[in-house]
Amino acid sequence: MRLTCPHCGPRDSREFKYFGDAKTARGDDFASTYLRDNPAGEHAEIWQHISGCRAWLEVVRNVTTHKVISVKEAGQ
């Protein structure tokens, strides 16, 4: 899989670290911490370009086809 980092361009996914569902990432209540929609389709998720610029990214990806639909900086 390849993700296009807004700062660094297209890179192999091994440069990135997956964090999880973007919808629940910001909260620390019970539902945010533990419950997931876990859809078999489009999924907004947080990745960090950990071996690159270390930016936090919000990636929309189809988790059934692995098609990457969009990548933008998270928290903007």
Binding site: M1, S13, R14, Y18, N38, A40, H43, V63, H66
Partner: peptide, 11 residues
């Protein structure tokens, strides 16, 4: 990462 694709990455 989340996946339902039943396939893995080369990395």
């Amino acid at each position: 990462y989340n996946s339902y694709a039943q396939r893995g990455s080369l990395g």
